[in-house]
Amino acid sequence: MSVLEVKDLHVSVETEQGTKQILKGVDLTVKQGEIHAIMGPNGSGKSTLAYSIAGHPKYHVESGSILLDGAEVLEMSVDERARAGIFLAMQYPVEIPGVRMTDFLRTAKTAIDGEAPAIRGWVKEVGEAMGALRMDKSFGERNVNEGFSGGEKKRHEILQLELLKPKFAVLDETDSGLDVDALKIVSEGVNRAHAATDLGVLLITHYTRILRYIKPDFVHVFVDGKVAEEGGPELAERLENEGYDRFLQPSGVA
């Protein structure tokens, strides 16, 4: 069984005001098949964790390690991490003009699998996955994310998740900006992928809303670059009722 381990991770970014520490020692272990919700107020470092796992060049890992089945992920390039089985569903997927969706999906699948998928089976699989996410067939002819609405972009991220079949998926605020119908469709996609491939999920969210549709096994609350509290699904319920206020009490204020 695969395991993704984050150990004492410290991450900084360069800003105009100089180097800023964002993650200040994160420890987290996700086993295949588990769903972990990472919750926390804005600016607590949730997205930084997501992009650090995927290897975005903007984030500098100062110390710590990320292990996938014991192999050091931090030594891998971005594409090597993806091929090793790590998937990041992005909050703001970028548009890529001139690259058709069908070409992009086939190229990505070929890169991940190390060989081109058999054409007939692949076309059918893509068609079914798109149908399940209520994506029109015409998406295949469009350029990657170009002119997609916010909801279409999120569905496209989940489409890739279902087609590329990673071991672990990091979902960075996939629920943001979705109406209830779109949220259900996207959540069903995540649940399908979880059931089909025993996917390990790191679900990053600000709100508890998506947890009605995707049931977490564990909930971690991020505050100021660290895990402040951990627990089971009941922790999410408490957050829904109380918000993040009790984590944000500034210490030593008169």
């Binding site: 594409d79 993806a82 992005m90 997927p93 001139g98 690259v99 991940i112 350029n143 590329l164």
Partner: peptide, 19 residues
């Protein structure tokens, strides 16, 4: 974005320029 889907840097450039 393309590399995060497993596509190498050279292949990513090729895709974008050809497109």
């Amino acid at each position: 974005y393309l590399q995060a889907r497993g596509i190498s840097e050279a292949e990513a450039r090729r895709l974008v320029v050809i497109g």
